[in-house]
Design a protein around this nucleic acid. Sequence first.
DNA 1: AATCCAATGATCGACGCTTTCATATCTCGA
DNA 2: TCGAGATATGAAAGCGTCGATCATTGGATT
Lengths: 334, 334
Amino acid sequence: MKPPVIADVARAAGVSVPTVSRVLNGTVPVSAERRARVLAAVRELGFRPNGAARSLAQRTGSMIAVFSGNTTRYGYASTIQGIEEAARQAGYMVVISVVETPDATTVERAIDHALGQPMAGAVVLEFDPAGVAALASMPPWLPAVAAASGGSSDADISHAYMDDRYAAAQATRYLLDLGHSTVHHVAIPSTGTESARLLGWRDALRDAGVPQPPVIRADWDPMSGYDAGAALAKDAGVTAVLAGNDELAVGIMKALADHGRSVPADVSVVGFDDHPLSQLWSPPLTTVRQDFVKLGHQVFGLLLGQLETGDARPSVRMIPDLVVRGSTGRPRTA
Amino acid sequence: MKPPVIADVARAAGVSVPTVSRVLNGTVPVSAERRARVLAAVRELGFRPNGAARSLAQRTGSMIAVFSGNTTRYGYASTIQGIEEAARQAGYMVVISVVETPDATTVERAIDHALGQPMAGAVVLEFDPAGVAALASMPPWLPAVAAASGGSSDADISHAYMDDRYAAAQATRYLLDLGHSTVHHVAIPSTGTESARLLGWRDALRDAGVPQPPVIRADWDPMSGYDAGAALAKDAGVTAVLAGNDELAVGIMKALADHGRSVPADVSVVGFDDHPLSQLWSPPLTTVRQDFVKLGHQVFGLLLGQLETGDARPSVRMIPDLVVRGSTGRPRTA
DNA sequence: AATCCAATGATCGACGCTTTCATATCTCGA
DNA sequence: TCGAGATATGAAAGCGTCGATCATTGGATT
């Protein structure tokens, strides 16, 4: 049992192959009568044009590759969802290419693999070192854009980015304004240089002329937030923490609670991302809301523009906003 | 600037086009010296075979389509990750095709779109009505498998499934054994028939000869769990709740807390899925652990077997296990 | 040294679709 | 009524790759 091809349709409709093609693509007028015959044949046979042949003939694909790290993380999954929605709208399919580590072999393998297929363009999720490496290895002839958090490493490529540096500074200032003498930071893994969130936190502390506590490094696992929180809990001087993301914030809060320090009475905690569960926490988490789905829409829009006009669009900046909930308050002594 | 083609490589290496093809595919012996020249040319030009031409010529793709609902939900995202890992291992790319609703138009569009590309096979995430509908519309010539939770609607297609019915019954019995007089259930959206989780819950209650409270219907949004929890909180007779998933459980627990009922002292709550954050809750959530990543591996294995041997593999059953943490305990009066 | 048999390289179509290009048909104004 | 222009349609030529068929070379055999 094989799928029907265009010749089968042509035969069934009693027309030539190109005529069928013209009806399907609607570029050239076809008489109403033949058009009807063709459409009827298409429906009857359940014909679906062969994408491989199609992209071979018009030397352009209708798929876009998304290079991403672990797709189960909230920010990644949401951004991909946004890209997929926008792509589907525009008639493109999304191919996921996971790049787990930034080493050359892994990156090359992923790119080779993806670009072995007929791709119209690529979106790189430049949220981690692997993304940065992938971006650096993109072949020049492939239209590509990047979604980033806090600026891109590659100025030649247009990108949509969350201004996390600005937002982190804002969140830090908010804590400072509440009366906290300083703010600690538990950082997510960096993209090679320091994460924009860390940079913004540092900016705010510097501008306020406040001492900078040492950065606590965590990985993507919420449990590493727990470990960081446990360390923080032992230091009575800690009254405010900016977490690199909500998962980490949750781990931190749990550790704090387990060590007898209450949130927000003893310690204020601010997260990052506005994870769907963060508002259901006790207390509800104050966090920096990131609209990743919209970021996905935007970055795909950039790519689409590039695909249609041929030249790159200027980058798009998105500003996350602070959502104040129950996990932050004035320090005891203020 | 255009990507190099095989003819460019042949010219650069001073050999014929088929020779390059043979070096690349390694089917027929080629002299060591020419082979070296070809490989050098490939590397230098950055040549990558055109997938469209390739799949057209050998009429088989190296991509597999995954039909899924909203990809940001934990179970979906994790399963897709598992599929992607296994597929990458085996040299396949994963194409995401989101089917948002079960209506014919949406399903047809998604399938048309995906199958327009050269697909080797398809995996359907049969976790919701949209998945069921997608499965029903799969063309017969495409090798397809399904990942399901609690049995598949289609006996002709091999599937890997979590035995949620069994697991839900087990979890319910666990609560009953703790001394609760009955167990309430907040259900996730069903797949057309009732969800396996609901069925298992009902099994356990029936077998125990215990009255079945009315089912509370929720959707995928954690906030709908909150609403359900608020309703439950008003009924003093409620001492145990089996939630359709962890997100819902979190919402329920929050509502319970907001209404002055403590967990687990007043009400025991059991979740489903073992979401990464559920152990960091206060109290840590007792839940039914589902290894979705492994489910993804398994279901891809099924597809791969089918692709290689041509005939379908028997279905694979996976048994989730109950993880007892802090959100459950004996009822006050027991 | 002549013949035959590997071993290896080159030529020649598919594959399914799009896209010139040429042809048949038709319309309309002079 | 006839020719020019417009228009629908068909024939043919790729798109980049792979597989089968042919042609060639070198060496081994007698």
